[in-house]
Design a protein around this nucleic acid. Structure first.
Length: 159
DNA sequence: GCCAACGTTGGC
DNA sequence: GCCAACGTTGGC
């Protein structure tokens, strides 16, 4: 019998005025490439660890009410982020070699939007989530791992 | 708008 | 390899 690959859980941040969960829901095929990540830790996770079917929590940052607002899923594993080579792109990286991709991205697809967003302020009150990467002081990673336990708690709170 | 925390750059 | 300076993130 084939071993069932275990699903991993992640959280991605997006500024809603740039690309919100509603934008994702309205995108063609409700899918987008998660371009523009220019941080090595985040890149490594997208390039090396995110697998098809992995579950992604969608977080709105830099807004009046920072919150986890819904769920997406990985529909394409890591591949070169071509926007790094595009001079017109805000995330253009002049040091990214043409023949050797420096930055990677995955494709994610909309799954659902929470009826009630789980605000950062609220999440901080949940004792079972206190070690979540998102809630750690100074945590700025735009792609973060989430444990299965944390995910279970969040889904329960969001319904 | 402020500012703490963090990552990156580059001189030495 | 150290570390100061700088730029960015992102909550408040």
């Amino acid at each position: 019998m084939a071993k069932k690959p275990s699903v991993k859980y992640w959280l991605v941040k997006s500024e809603p005025h740039v690309f919100s969960i509603d934008d994702l829901a309205q995108a063609p095929d409700q899918t987008t490439h998660w371009d523009g990540v220019r941080n090595y830790q985040a890149r490594n996770m997208m390039r090396d660890e995110m697998q098809l079917g992995d579950v992604v929590l969608y977080y709105h940052s830099n807004t009046d009410e920072p919150a986890i607002v819904g769920v997406a899923t990985v529909v394409q594993t890591g591949y070169p982020d071509f926007t790094a080579w595009d001079k017109q792109d805000p995330h253009y990286d002049p040091k990214a070699p043409i023949d050797k991709p420096r930055w990677y991205m995955v494709d994610i697809k909309f799954v659902k939007k929470f009826a009630q967003p789980l605000t950062l302020a609220f999440l901080r009150t949940v004792s079972t989530l206190e070690s979540m990467v998102l809630l750690r002081k100074g945590s700025r990673l735009s792609v973060q791992p989430v444990t299965a336990q944390e995910y279970a708690v969040i889904v329960k709170l969001a319904k």
